[in-house]
């Protein structure tokens, strides 16, 4: 099979794949994108002023004296095999990643940057209740990883970034975090907030180091 034949063989089945979103829907969404850009331009400028101090406050556990020296994160193994990750500050991502891998968890950890581009989402994991990962809202942020419950070929991706949080006048009970949902009106109370997440990715040497969990 020469190269041209191979490419034709691979391309041909995709002729059955069609984009069926109406152009009117695309244009409607495009208008929202334009509106969001205008709003976030204003929100970003406000956040630059107050961002750093708010962020540090938000990361400290409630009631802890300011200025205390805190470990950025802690990893502890439980008797039942669960690995508990407590994150207090978005620092030392590389060491956290190494620690998790040393504990047998295929892991990719990034703080303050985009996730590892080599990582691919594990199929069918939008429902994290089935992923073998439990997360509590923070701070501090706590993830309980159940290695034996990770699906075959899956690894754990943990990421932390600062986002903008804001309110929309008229909806004071709701705090939005950019980029979703796109605001349609002026926003207020813009602050930077730390956001942590965890999810499953396909384990690979480039993404998670280990290609499968190490049990026991």
């Amino acid at each position: 099979m020469n190269d041209d034949t191979l490419m034709t063989t691979v391309r041909e089945p995709f002729t059955a794949v069609h984009m069926d979103t109406p152009v009117e829907q695309i244009v409607g969404r495009g208008r929202a994108v334009r509106a969001r850009r205008r709003i976030l331009g204003l929100a970003g400028a406000a956040a630059m002023v107050a961002g750093a101090a708010v962020a540090v406050t938000a990361l400290l556990p409630a009631g802890h004296p300011a200025g205390a020296q805190l470990a950025a994160w802690t990893v502890t193994g439980q008797a039942n095999g669960t690995i508990r990750v407590t994150i207090r500050e978005l620092r030392d991502a590389a060491r956290l990643q190494s620690t998790l891998r040393a504990d047998g968890v295929p892991a990719s950890v990034t703080f303050g940057s985009e996730p590892n581009p080599s990582c691919r989402e594990y199929p069918g994991t939008w429902n994290l209740s089935k992923s073998g990962i439990q997360a509590d809202s923070g701070p501090p942020y706590i993830f309980a990883i159940h290695p034996s419950a990770l699906p075959r070929g899956a690894g754990v991706q943990i990421g932390g970034k600062f986002d903008f949080a804001y309110s929309i006048p008229g909806h004071p009970a709701t705090t939005y975090i950019s980029p979703w949902p796109p605001p349609k009106s002026p926003v207020s109370g813009v602050v930077r907030v730390p956001v942590l997440m965890a999810g499953l990715v396909q384990a690979s040497p480039q993404c998670t180091g280990l290609t499968s969990r190490l049990d026991g």
């Binding site: 996730p115 989402e121 594990y122 199929p123 069918g124 994991t125 939008w126 429902n127 994290l128 209740s129 089935k130 992923s131 073998g132 990962i133 439990q134 997360a135 309980a144 159940h146 034996s148 419950a149 990770l150 699906p151 075959r152 070929g153 991706q157 990421g159 970034k161 986002d163 979703w180 956001v195 942590l196 997440m197 965890a198 999810g199 396909q202």
Partner: peptide
């Protein structure tokens, strides 16, 4: 992937068998 944080995950290890294989 950042948007997944909006889910409120609860542990249900017994349900992982429902996940599709890669």
């Amino acid at each position: 992937w950042r948007r997944r944080r909006r889910e409120v995950p609860l542990p249900d290890p017994g349900a992982v068998a429902d996940l599709p294989a890669a």
